[in-house]
């Protein structure tokens, strides 16, 4: 039962990583830009979630507010930072993205303070439920259910809607997609909106789990999601999902079996190094982009 519990914990964290990694891989797939500042959108979502929950006393308002703020931030980042740089070599938007992450983290520090801000009330932190003999935190369960529901809704949108088909066509061949009336600019905005919405949602979920938001909370997530999309194969949605769940489970077991020598957060870095050495094309074949 202990091993099952570790696997379940891993899948729960993996589902949160999937929310973040999918946004990152979507943006890489369309623009070939490594959107490192995605982590700042995640942090923004966390802050807006905490502030809104504290102001209104309602998580039902906090979640949409955080997602909306993340979407607007993502769109603004695309419009103001990446769009003017798309004709430049890939290193230029990458450097801009790293600079933006540092800038936004410092901005959070200046505006909200170095210590971060906590929820006034978070009754769910210590609540647990028992499912099939396993004791799971309510927030962890909510994180898993929220992630699976969001990712499933996104998968259905991509697979069954006309806009989803146009979106995939643009990932595969933007020039031909425009020949059939698809606006590449609109698809790019949609891409940033969806990816950022996932990051905002993940931000609030993690803030709830930690019971606070702090300026540097995106840093570790940023390199973990980078490890995941390399693990899954750059630009591959399926790879990002597999990579996320795999990293969650490896971390979960690694925390127990490697606890003497390796920190939990270092496991992602080890995976990244191993993948770059032995399978640089990633674990899954690229299916989109």
């Amino acid at each position: 039962m202990y091993y099952v519990e570790l696997a379940v914990q891993g899948l729960i964290y993996g589902s949160m990583y999937a929310l973040m990694a999918l946004g990152l891989t979507l943006i890489y797939g369309l623009l070939r830009v490594l959107h490192i500042a995605h982590a700042a959108v995640f942090t923004l979502g966390a802050y807006v979630g905490v502030i809104t929950a504290n102001a209104t006393g309602s998580l039902w308002i906090a979640f949409p507010a955080a997602i909306l703020a993340a979407v607007l931030a993502g769109i603004a980042i695309y419009r103001l930072v990446y769009a003017p740089l798309l004709d430049r070599p890939p290193l230029v938007p990458l450097i801009a993205s790293v600079g933006l992450l540092i800038l936004l983290e410092d901005l959070f520090r200046i505006v909200f303070g170095n210590q971060g801000i906590a929820f006034n009330e978070n009754p769910y932190v210590y609540m647990t439920v028992t499912i099939g003999g396993l004791s799971i935190g309510v927030l962890q369960l909510a994180m898993f259910v929220g992630s699976v529901a969001s990712l499933s809704a996104f998968a259905a949108f991509v697979a069954f809607s006309r806009t989803g088909a146009a979106w995939r066509a643009t990932l595969g061949n933007p020039q031909m997609a425009t020949s059939f009336g698809v606006s590449v600019a609109q698809v790019r905005y949609l891409n940033f909106a969806i990816g950022s919405a996932f990051a905002g949602l993940a931000g609030v979920l993690i803030a709830l789990l930690n019971n606070y938001a702090e300026p540097g909370m995106g840093t570790i997530v940023s390199y973990k999601t980078l490890a995941i999309i390399v693990l899954g194969g750059l630009g591959s949605m399926r790879g990002a999902l597999i990579g996320s769940l795999l990293l969650g489970v490896i971390e979960s077991y690694g925390t127990v079996y490697l606890s003497g020598g390796v920190d939990r957060d270092a496991i992602a870095a080890l995976c990244l190094i191993a993948i770059l050495m032995f399978r640089p094309e990633g674990l899954a074949k690229r299916i989109a982009a």
Binding site: R168, G172, M176, F180
Partner: peptide, 30 residues
């Protein structure tokens, strides 16, 4: 395209990862 111009390009340039039906869906996007 919206005004009624369409192209069959050299080398076909289909949306290779998508099904036949989905390719037609994109063709009829407008």
């Amino acid at each position: 395209a919206r005004l009624g111009m369409a192209v069959v390009p050299e080398g076909r340039r289909l949306f290779a990862d998508m099904t036949v039906d989905e390719n037609l869906t994109v063709g009829g996007y407008t």
